[in-house]
Simulated scan of single mutants.
Amino acid sequence: MNKRIALAGNPNTGKSTLFNLLTGLKQHTGNWPGKTVAHAEGELTTEKATYQIIDLPGTYSLYSNSEDEEVARNYIIFEKPALTLVVLDATSIERNLNLALQVMEMTSQVIVCINLIDEARRKGIEIDAKKMSEQLGVPVILLSAREKIGIIQLLKTIDNMMERKITTKPFQIAYSDEIEQKIKQLEPHIKKVFGDDLPTRWIALRLLDNDQSLFDELKSYLGQDKQTSIEKVIYSNKERSYGA
């Protein structure tokens, strides 16, 4: 059973504080293979199991704008952690939701952790976690890693997610009719190459963005003998785009 948990979030959301609280002294740091980007890993033990937590670089998005973003994106897509915790700042939810929505396009196994809830309450900000959960289609936990608020609920939710006791249906952004039509055209071709191994809708969106960094990663993921198959999809997409 895959017991790895990825921890994602914008900078300054208290993500590292949450990581330190969950892992205690059972952690170590290092660099990603072939990268200058540092990362931390640690162990979390709950009532049900012990999990490995990977603290991803703090990023504002998961596109190919920086090495940090590529590292975080690649881990979620290619390493396929069993669960991804997305940490949001309770005082700046609207700005932080961009990253959460991107992660939910990549994987359905997501818990949204709204951190710094103590600061939000001092500012008179009230957050309806139940309503947010209904709208986002994934569990939403209010917490303060600094004050240790909501941690027990988070641990129970992690166990329930890992045991598949919680069914998620992540909110999907609806794009323009033109983009949605192109996604529908691309998805069958992508599925032929990757099957259910990778999220076809997300890959289609990145192909439409002409994300060269991701193209290279996809070819590397497939291996030399299967690279031609994804190249055909990439080039057919470019022809489709130019002809639009």
Rank of each mutant, 00 (worst) to 15 (best):
A100P: 11
L101S: 01
Q102S: 09
V103W: 08
V103Y: 11
M104D: 01
M104S: 14
M104T: 09
M104P: 15
E105H: 13
E105A: 08
E105Y: 02
E105S: 10
M106D: 06
M106G: 06
T107Q: 11
T107E: 14
S108L: 03
S108A: 15
S108C: 08
Q109S: 15
Q109H: 15
Q109R: 14
Q109E: 15
V110I: 09
I111F: 09
I111C: 08
V112M: 09
V112I: 13
V112F: 00
C113V: 15
I114C: 01
I114K: 00
N115W: 04
N115A: 11
N115L: 13
L116E: 13
L116W: 07
L116D: 04
I117Y: 03
D118R: 00
E119K: 10
A120P: 05
A120H: 10
A120M: 14
R121P: 01
R121S: 07
R121C: 12
R122F: 01
R122V: 02
R122D: 04
K123R: 11
K123G: 09
G124Y: 04
G124T: 04
I125M: 11
I125R: 13
E126N: 05
I127L: 02
I127D: 13
I127Q: 07
I127S: 10
I127C: 10
K130W: 00
K130R: 14
K131L: 14
K131A: 14
M132C: 06
E134D: 15
E134K: 15
Q135Y: 04
Q135P: 03
L136P: 06
L136G: 00
L136S: 11
L136F: 14
L136V: 11
G137Y: 08
G137I: 13
G137V: 12
V138S: 15
V138C: 12
P139A: 12
P139Y: 09
P139Q: 13
V140I: 08
V140S: 14
I141H: 03
I141C: 05
I141E: 10
L142M: 02
L142Y: 00
L142R: 04
L143E: 03
L143R: 04
L143C: 06
L143P: 13
S144Q: 05
S144I: 06
A145W: 09
A145P: 04
R146G: 05
R146D: 07
R146C: 06
E147D: 06
K148W: 05
K148L: 01
K148T: 09
I149E: 12
I149T: 04
G150E: 08
G150H: 13
I151F: 03
I152N: 08
I152Y: 08
Q153I: 06
L154E: 03
L155I: 05
L155S: 00
T157F: 03
I158D: 11
I158F: 07
D159I: 04
N160G: 03
N160K: 10
M161C: 07
M161A: 00
M162R: 03
E163V: 02
E163L: 15
E163G: 02
R164E: 12
R164F: 07
K165D: 02
